[in-house]
Structure formats: structure tokens, C-alpha cells
């Protein structure tokens, strides 16, 4: 498996690792059984993501995806964060190997899961969160 320099950079020097004690939303996706868990903490003020931190148990690309995803949404609006796709995360990392694409899916879902937690805690409706199912067993796409 060969990772891009970007992936290696974010793996080695992950941005925004850690936790936010008084987070406004916390989301966790993945499954330790599968070898990956991603947890996102959001600090949101006036609809803007003021701060974001993550913790990840997972492979190199899971850690890099978490790191890149936090960078991509920091300072952005909730709407912008909602629009972040796994593909955008992977692209920002100069691509991921096909079998590792699902790691970027985890990153996208971790953000949405944290936003869902935020919307519940603060009783705020966020467009597009209603029909997300985080229990999706995110298969490793086998290359063909």
C-alpha cells in the first residue's frame, strides 16, 4: 500500500488531535472490532465551527483522514461542514488507495455524527441529518 506524501504528513503530524472538554457536539463512528474508531469533538459558535478535535484508533489513512477532515471544517459553517464529502477528504489528501477509501467515509460520518449530537443537545435542526444511518457497515471496498 503506498500512501501519498500528504497522507504521510497528516499521519505523522496530525492536526487537531485531542479532545474538547466542553464540546458542543461529540460524534463517534466505527467499530473497534473492525479496527477503527473515530471520535470528533466540535465547538460551535453562531453556526461556525470554532474548534474541532479528534481521536482515532485506526490505520494510517484513518488517522490522516481525521486530521484532514478537521482542517477542512475548522472555521467553516455548519452547512459547509455538512457538505464535506469523503471524496473531498480523500482528494485533499492527494488520494487514498481504493481499499482505504472507507477510512475517509468514517471521517465524513464522524463529523455528521458530531453535528447530530450538537443538533440534539441544542435542539437545532440541521438539514440532511435526518436520514443518515451511522450503523452502515462500511465495507472495505475490495479493488477489482
Amino acid at each position: 500500500m503506498m500512501y501519498s506524501d500528504k497522507v504521510m504528513d497528516h499521519f505523522t503530524n496530525p492536526r487537531n488531535v485531542g479532545e474538547i472538554i466542553d464540546a458542543d457536539g461529540i460524534g463517534e463512528v466505527g467499530n473497534a472490532k473492525c479496527g477503527d474508531i473515530m471520535r470528533m469533538y466540535l465547538k460551535i459558535e453562531d453556526g461556525i465551527i470554532e474548534d474541532v478535535k479528534f481521536k482515532t484508533f485506526g490505520c494510517g489513512s484513518a488517522i490522516a483522514s481525521s486530521s484532514m477532515a478537521t482542517e477542512l471544517i475548522k472555521g467553516k459553517t455548519i452547512d459547509e461542514a455538512m457538505r464535506l464529502t469523503n471524496k473531498a477528504v480523500a482528494d485533499a489528501l492527494d488520494g487514498l488507495p481504493p481499499v482505504k477509501m472507507h477510512c475517509s467515509v468514517l471521517a465524513e460520518q464522524a463529523i455528521k455524527s458530531a453535528l447530530l449530537d450538537y443538533s440534539k443537545k441544542h435542539n437545532i435542526h440541521i438539514e440532511g441529518l435526518e436520514d443518515i444511518n451511522f450503523d452502515d457497515d462500511h465495507h472495505h471496498d475490495i479493488e477489482e
Binding site: T12, G35, F57, G58, G60, A62
Partner: peptide
Amino acid sequence: EFIEGESLLLSLDM
């Protein structure tokens, strides 16, 4: 415990 093999390998490689 608590860590995943591939990230360990990558870190060692580095």
C-alpha cells in the same frame, strides 16, 4: 492494546 497495527508499522517505517 488500543492501537492499530498499520499505524504502528507506518510509524516504525518512518
